[in-house]
């Protein structure tokens, strides 16, 4: 014998069918008309996006690898041996991409890659068996309401953070050095300029931020106004050679491999960086 709940929901479904038969409207033309309007909106959106993608590319012929409002038409051809490229998935995977940055400790990597996404997928598949109440009105389904709000908000936040995540690609950032020099006022300072270029290509911006460049992922200090702290060149060189000796517990690796000359130039650059607009 079926339980009361099962008997009740079967009855409700029979009632539903009876109600529809009695008071329903034919699908065509009523509901189908609105489906058609929505489909027209969808097709117009797709065509509109395609047109904008192509025709906002600068240049006379709107072709090539320059980005328009919606990005590039295509990148450079694939080069498996490159050292100069930062991978990105398509935007609808940004939330997964950012999860990889959230789980940044080596022993947690597999949680971010396949653990969490698969758990969510299984939950999604099992939803009708987890929620067996027959209540459909949203305000009387608090768990569903809270869960859906949480999921939507967190996916939105993760997607946004994934979209705005920045990296430091040395070959690109070295072109910013003149701007840095202008903003920080060390344009005439030769060792500082050389140090700035070293700073751009030595991977410092993988962890640190400087003015608007750099990746904030690993929580390293912002160096825009490092020189204003008055630590002195000798301290900077010693720190670069062995950060943990100078700052106990520092996770920063040693840069002694750059050589004394280069370290002095880096130190000069850091000490010359007193802050934007503060010469």
């Amino acid at each position: 014998m079926a339980s009361d709940r099962v008997v009740e929901r079967r009855r409700v479904f029979q009632q539903y069918k009876a109600d529809v038969k009695e008071r329903g409207k034919p699908f065509y033309p009523y509901a189908m008309f609105h489906d058609t309007i929505m489909s027209l909106v969808v097709v117009a959106t797709i065509i509109g996006l395609a047109v904008i993608w192509k025709w906002t590319i600068p240049g006379a012929h709107h072709i090539g690898t320059e980005p328009g409002w919606l990005g590039k038409l295509y990148d450079a051809p694939a080069d498996p041996g490159t050292t100069n490229f930062v991978p990105r998935p398509d935007w609808y995977f940004y939330f997964l991409f950012y999860l990889l940055r959230v789980f940044k400790w080596p022993w947690t990597v597999f949680i971010g890659t396949i653990g969490l996404p698969n758990v969510l997928l299984v939950l999604l598949l099992a939803m009708p068996f987890i929620d067996i109440r027959s209540e459909r009105h949203l305000l009387r389904r608090p768990v569903a309401l809270v869960a859906s709000v949480l999921v939507i908000v967190s996916m939105g936040v993760l997607t946004y953070k994934g979209a705005t995540a920045k990296e430091a690609l040395g070959s690109e950032i070295v072109g910013h050095v003149p701007t840095w020099a202008a903003k920080e006022g060390f344009t005439g300072n030769t060792p500082a300029l050389a140090g700035a270029k070293l700073f751009a290509v030595s991977g410092c911006l993988n962890c640190h931020t400087y003015i608007s460049d750099g990746g904030e992922n690993l929580g390293a200090p912002v160096l825009t106004a490092e020189g204003a702290k008055g630590k002195g060149i000798a301290f900077q060189v010693a720190h670069l050679k062995c950060p943990a000796c100078v700052n106990a517990g520092s996770p920063m690796p040693s840069f002694v491999g750059l050589g004394d000359d280069n370290l002095k130039k880096l130190a000069a650059f850091l000490e010359a960086s007193k802050g934007v607009g503060k010469h």
Partner: peptide
Amino acid sequence: VSIAGFGCPCHGGQYDT
């Protein structure tokens, strides 16, 4: 010229020489 280590731009991995 001289290398202090290696860094990965994707998620901030760092390696020594």
